[in-house]
Each structure stands twice: as C-alpha cells, then as structure tokens.
C-alpha cells in the first residue's frame, strides 16, 4: 500500500534480528548462605538467592509478578550484623552478606507468624499455608479457642484507635460471614491473611482499577471497597486478578465456592489446559480448569509475557457459552 514492491512482496530480512537495547549485566556478588559461599547476581533478592540454591523458604505475600510488600514476614532470615531478621523476599543481596535461613531465631519467627495467622484466620483452603504449619510445628491452639465470629459488617465499621478490651480467654479472629454480592466471585474475609496481593493486583501492579484498598488499622485492618459498598456499586471490573493472586482462597470463583458448598469440588478429577482467550486480539493465555467436561475455573500462568498471569472479565469469566445444551439435546449451543 505504500510502495508497489512492498505491496506485492514481503520486505527483506533485516541484517540481524531486532532486539532490545542491551542493559548492563548486573554484577555477581558473593554471599554466604547457611555457611556456604554462593555467587549470585546483585539484582537478586535473598529469596531468589536461596531458591536458586534449593533452600526452601516459605512465602505467603510474595509473588513474582507483584512488587514485594514484605508484610507476612514468614520469609524472614537472619543476617549477620542486622539487629532484626530481614525479609528475604524484598531484601537485595549485597556483597559479603552472611545469611542464615534455619537458625532457631528464624524458625521461631516463622513458627510464630504461622501461629498468629492460623489462630486468627481460616486457612482451610490454603494448602501451602497448611504445609508450612506442619513443617514449622505451629501450635495455634495455644492462644485459646477462637472468639465468636463477628456479624456481617461489624469489622468493616470499626474505627481506628478504639477497641473493646478483650477478656483474653478466647483468641480474636477475623471470622465473619462471606460476602456474596455478584455472580462471578465471592469474598470470604474470614480467610484473609491481609497479604495485600489483591490490592496490588487491583492497583498499580496490574489492573490499576483500585476498587479495593486496605482500610482500617491494626488488627481491624481489612480489604475494602469505599465504605464497604458491594462490588457491583464499586469500581470493580471483575478482572478477577485478585482471585488469581489470593493465596488462601479468600477470593474464589463463585462456581468453585458453590461446588465446594455442594461437596462436588474435586481437584483430583480436574485437568488444566492452556489455550488462548477467544475474545480480543491481545492473545492472553488461559489455563482452563476442567472437571467433568465443564470449565470450573480460569487462571493464567505467571511466566507468560503477554499476561503475567492477569486477565480481564471476559477471559476470566466469559467461558460459559461453550457449556451448551445437554449431551443428547440439540447439537448446537444456544446462541
């Protein structure tokens, strides 16, 4: 359309494949991890250095695709010369660091963090956290039996700087009724460990919609829309990226939630297949979780450059149209 020769024939190949301008290679630094000298990239965090050496380091609020907020503190390690433990997920390596990942101090802090979470939050749909609890021999029961769950909206109405003095005989929790206010997903904040991931995914790290934020303060801090309004009244655009990053099942597809309620959710009978979204031309990878030849959940892999694990409402929830008529009924789906 520009030049006749280019209209009829593809252009010649460039001399070499085009590439991004080179960036300075990060230096290699030497650190000591658990007594072993290790050479690692200076751009790495302690967590990356540990994982590159196969050193198991628990994380809950960390995700490759999100800015580390280092709030759960379950990844803490001991750093020689540091008064406190440091979060492996966000602390960058520096030359000569001496790091201990399995000292009694480290184990104590990790165990206590896990006990604090398990004694205040329902971790029943957080298999990773369950593994850590066993691994660190956490005993959440020693804080007393859980306090009575709060009624709907009570925690959302709490004001900062004021609380009723507890008797202390029961452990306060975040237990409260599930928020079901739309057809696509539910919010069960009894299961929320306040890892900030959903806020990051809704905000600057992915969707930039900012429909939710952390509200309140201290133990009363919670994830909330403005004024705790229902999602359909909020700025939420149902991309579900919050669900994609939630580590505890507090945010869940309504289909999964209802199947779990009905006792029909069975991950052992599910397959996961990667394909491409049927809608616009961006080309997002969808992982279709299928049970009994029905899509029950959609996720997206983190390591795909197009999505970094994030989707929009259509890709995440717009699959029902393939669930057509019953097997023996009309051969075509309802339009």
């Amino acid at each position: 359309m520009i030049d006749d020769s280019l209209w009829f024939r593809p252009p010649p190949r460039p001399g070499s494949p085009p590439s991004a301008p080179p960036k300075a290679e990060p230096a290699v630094v030497e650190v000591v991890i658990d007594g072993q000298k290790v050479e690692v990239s200076s751009s790495w965090t302690i967590l990356e250095a540990c994982r590159s050496r196969g050193i198991d380091t628990p994380t809950l609020c960390y995700l490759e695709s999100l800015t580390p907020v280092n709030v759960c503190r379950v990844c803490v390690v001991e750093l020689a010369g540091s008064r406190t433990l440091v979060p492996a997920c966000s602390r960058r390596v520096e030359p000569g660091m001496e790091i201990r990942t399995d000292s009694p101090r480290v184990r104590l802090s990790r165990r206590m963090v896990l006990e604090f979470l398990a004694s205040s939050v329902d971790l029943s749909t957080a298999p990773q956290a369950q593994e850590y609890l066993a691994q660190y021999e956490a005993r959440p029961e020693r804080y007393g039996s859980p306090a009575t769950p709060t009624p709907a909206g009570e925690r959302d109405a709490r004001e900062p700087g004021h609380h009723h003095l507890p008797e202390g005989t029961a452990a306060e929790t975040v237990a409260q009724p599930v928020k079901v206010d739309n057809d696509l997903y539910v919010r069960d904040y009894s299961k929320c460990i306040l890892c900030y991931k959903c806020v990051e995914a809704c905000g600057t790290d992915a969707q930039n919609t900012f429909a939710i934020a952390v509200a309140g303060r201290g133990f009363d801090a919670r994830i909330s829309t403005e004024g705790d309004i229902p999602l359909p009244d909020s700025a939420c655009v149902y991309c579900g990226n919050c669900i994609g990053v939630c580590p505890t099942g507090a945010l869940m597809f309504r289909s999964e939630y209802e199947m779990r309620q009905a006792g029909t959710w069975d991950e052992s009978r599910q397959t996961s297949t990667d394909t491409i979204c049927p809608y616009c031309g961006v080309g997002c990878t969808l992982s279709l979780h299928v049970q009994d030849n029905r899509i029950v959940k959609v996720t997206s892999p983190m390591d795909v450059e197009v999505t970094h694990g994030h989707l929009c409402i259509k890709g995440r929830f717009g699959f029902d149209f393939v669930h057509g008529g019953e097997p023996d009924a009309e051969p075509t789906r309802d339009g």
């Binding site: 503190r73 379950v74 206590m112 700087g161 306060e172 201290g218 133990f219 009363d220 801090a221």
Partner: peptide, 15 residues
Amino acid sequence: DESCGQCVPCRVGTV
C-alpha cells in the same frame, strides 16, 4: 490500637 496492621507479627502479636 496504634499498630498499622501491615505486618503479621505486630498486627496479631499486639492482640
């Protein structure tokens, strides 16, 4: 009351 609530040790530990 004054814990910001961000990190688990302080948020739950103070309670």
